[in-house]
Design a binder for these strands. Sequence first.
DNA 1: TCCTATCCTGGCACTGAATGCCATGATTCG
DNA 2: CGAATCATGGCATTCAGTGCCAGGATAGGA
Lengths: 246, 246
Amino acid sequence: MKYTGGSVILFGCGTEVAVAQARVSTREVVLAAVGLFTEYGFERTTMDGIATATGVSRRSLFRRFGSKEDILFSEHDELFTTVARYLDASPDDPLTAVHSAARMVFQGYLRDPEITLPRYRLVRAHPRLRDREVAMTARYQSAFSHYLTERSGAGLSLASGVVAASVIAAHNHVLRSWLRDPGEEEEAVWARFDDAMAYVSTAARPLLEPGSGARPGRVLVALYPSDADNDEVLRRIGSALEPDAF
Amino acid sequence: MKYTGGSVILFGCGTEVAVAQARVSTREVVLAAVGLFTEYGFERTTMDGIATATGVSRRSLFRRFGSKEDILFSEHDELFTTVARYLDASPDDPLTAVHSAARMVFQGYLRDPEITLPRYRLVRAHPRLRDREVAMTARYQSAFSHYLTERSGAGLSLASGVVAASVIAAHNHVLRSWLRDPGEEEEAVWARFDDAMAYVSTAARPLLEPGSGARPGRVLVALYPSDADNDEVLRRIGSALEPDAF
DNA sequence: TCCTATCCTGGCACTGAATGCCATGATTCG
DNA sequence: CGAATCATGGCATTCAGTGCCAGGATAGGA
């Protein structure tokens, strides 16, 4: 193990005692920083303030996190590398793999409300942080798109981009609703997430089918209630196929 | 008109002559800054350097543009407000309006290669600028999504988000190919743009039809060649409707 | 056990972005 | 012509971010 050494002066009983001190973990720093950002605002919190609050020197904070913003999004970065590795090694069919990857991202938010919830409030208040958050999700979208293009064939890069964008949009749709109301039952949240994913992937799968081509001659999309009669559906589709209907 | 006054000292024939000087336009500043960024790199170009190069004081640069990055994206901002205003006043049906709005954005790039092309190179080289570019397109996407939700009914917010994301993805797909190869015939570029838009809007329109609901019980998407027989299409759809097929 | 290479840390100094304050000059309105 | 308004630019200050360097801890080898 690294960083098990070092010593800290404890004040007690009038004596100073040297005690083994573990390196301040990334998570501890992030939690402290989030607390300061929330209490005093992002701009008004200085790196010096975070340094004194965490006991880590200002210089080391910059070395470990890169920038003040990066402290807020550090584990977002970790999650991204995890997801990217997962995709790279995934044996599933492309769309299912992307679906699972989106699930991992969503899980990353739900798992850590202590950080993601205050971060959401900060992101809403500060345009710069919002841009950063957006850029993070764009990285996922780009990774999804490249993955789909790679696995589905280069001729489908437009379709891949659209599908990736749709998956991310559906993910963000459910995510935002959770961030706004985190009190909801976790089971219900996951149900809505799966609904949204099914919604996009059902519509997306044909776009990525081999042989369909990047630009099909005709596309038909039908939406109908679950209790609709199959014959009725067929009849309506038949009328939709009339030359003047399209 | 504003800023037509002022005077500048010209050195000629050993005499100093006061001459009317127009305020340095935003565009001139942007062009000069882009030139410096390209020549010396974004980080190594200082605001002082831009100030001396343009004749505008450092302080005024910050006042007029907000930040160094903002100089690069200033007219992107203007374009956004134009597009947002257009959407707000658009009498067309929602999807067509969004289609036109995307066209305006694309036009904004094509119209001004002197800025957009070097900016693209800078954006590719610097992660921070890339994030900023991504955030800009996300603003369009968000505007499209809100507009569609507003016009199509609040129950369709998921569909609106997915459609907006798809439109932006298609837009970016064509845009990137142009940025990489700006030499292509403008007509051909527009043809590919319209193809991509048709590709997404054909698939998207049914999602926004009133009465379909935000989460339909069943969704069917069919892609088939233009020369397919209608009866054959119907037969296949009929078999797809069998309980075990879905 | 000792020595050494390596790595992390923190202190210091420096550059440069960004902001607040204020005086000046230009434009517009009455 | 006078007053109000506004953009400008100069100045000082704060603070993010970086380079440099020395000290302490750890791991590996003799």
